[in-house]
């Protein structure tokens, strides 16, 4: 069955299905119960599953993740919601030194199937700490898996895959894509969780991105087409591990790669992709891999976010530079 849904609703249905299938799955977070979350992603779930499975927790992020770890030790599969990207940092130690390393520390005696959902990224004109892209910290950390869906269909399927994973998953939900609708195959078989995917074929330049950037790349490809330039667009879907094969195959065809992201470019996921493609596809490349990123400054006041965030023009500027070699 196919339904036309927003990503917020699609993730909501994915959570609902995961909770119906496995009663060890429970949700924890601030305002996620009665209110249904500030983005309403958990709307209605407390009514269906009760307050023992949809926990409006005390207001303490380290407490949320730390107790989720204890619940995982007890055999539960907790799904934590961090209210906004910039508020994950109070939980940083529990994520980095505890959750990420526990599996290795336990040497096979205990799994830690904890999902941490984080609405992330800009384009919503919000005050400080509400528009950040912290993915590099998590992708850098062994023991975590990092996913970011770009479409409602992926939101629905990937949240279920994240919950079924026996490892900790950082699940980054692009706020800017919460409301646009798309077709969701409710019963269709999902793509593998870590697969990256060509979402538009082209021949001149490969452009890669994740989350809200994917829609931006598709817009850029449409504009480029008008100028007679053919872009191949790849949706990363998974930031750790990254599925490189489709990227390498595409670069083998186009010889040019532009990586786009909202996050600051220094030591970023885009940097890692650029380095890996340079290592693995050097002889296919006809130009250096270029990155289009947020600037290496704190996320600016919202009136400046249009300047800070990569847009179609900045993507096409990089495409032109790549083609200039």
């Amino acid at each position: 069955m196919t339904e036309n849904l927003s990503m917020a609703k699609a993730i909501n249905l994915g959570l609902q299905r995961a909770m119906r299938e496995d009663d060890r799955v429970l949700l924890m977070g601030e305002d996620i119960g009665t209110l249904g979350g500030v983005f309403r992603v958990t709307e209605g779930l407390k009514n269906e599953f009760g307050e023992n499975r949809v926990l409006d927790t005390p207001l303490a992020e380290s407490g949320i993740v730390g107790t989720a770890i204890g619940l995982a030790m007890r055999g539960y599969r907790p799904v934590c919601e961090i209210q906004f990207d910039g508020f994950v940092f109070p939980a940083f130690d529990q994520i980095m030194s505890q959750l990420a390393k526990q599996t290795s520390r336990h040497q096979g005696t205990q799994s830690f199937p904890v999902v941490i959902r984080i609405p992330y990224g800009g384009h919503i004109g919000a005050v400080e700490h509400h528009q950040e892209s912290p993915e590099a910290y998590f992708a850098h950390t062994a023991g975590l898996r990092v996913l970011s869906p770009a479409t409602p269909n992926d939101g629905y399927h990937m949240i279920q895959q994240a919950i079924q994973s026996n490892d900790p998953v950082i699940f980054l939900e692009p706020k800017a894509r919460y409301w646009p609708k798309g077709d969701v195959e409710l019963d269709g078989p999902p793509a593998p969780m870590h697969q990256s995917r060509v979402v538009r074929t082209g021949t001149d330049v490969t452009v890669v991105g994740h989350g809200a950037m994917v829609a931006m790349l598709l817009d850029a490809a449409e504009v480029a087409k008008g100028e007679g330039i053919s872009l191949e667009v790849i949706d990363l879907r998974s930031l750790s591990p990254v599925d490189y094969d489709p990227i390498i195959a595409s670069v083998a065809k186009t010889g040019r790669l532009v990586v786009a992201q909202e996050a600051p470019g220094n030591a970023s996921v885009g940097s890692e992709i650029a380095a890996t493609v340079a290592e693995r596809a050097f002889f296919h490349l006809e130009s250096p891999v270029l990155r289009v990123s947020g600037f290496d400054v704190p996320f600016p006041p919202a009136n400046l976010e249009g300047v800070y965030l990569p847009d179609v023009d900045r993507i096409l500027d990089a495409v032109d530079r790549a083609r200039g070699y």
Partner: peptide, 26 residues
């Protein structure tokens, strides 16, 4: 730790208190 019900030593101070509470909630 599942056999002994004595969990692993924890070196980051205080972090185990949250794990213990989560386990107790469970």
């Amino acid at each position: 730790p599942n056999e002994s019900k004595f969990r692993l030593y924890t070196l980051v101070l205080g972090t185990q208190t949250l794990h213990a509470v989560g386990y107790a909630m469970g």
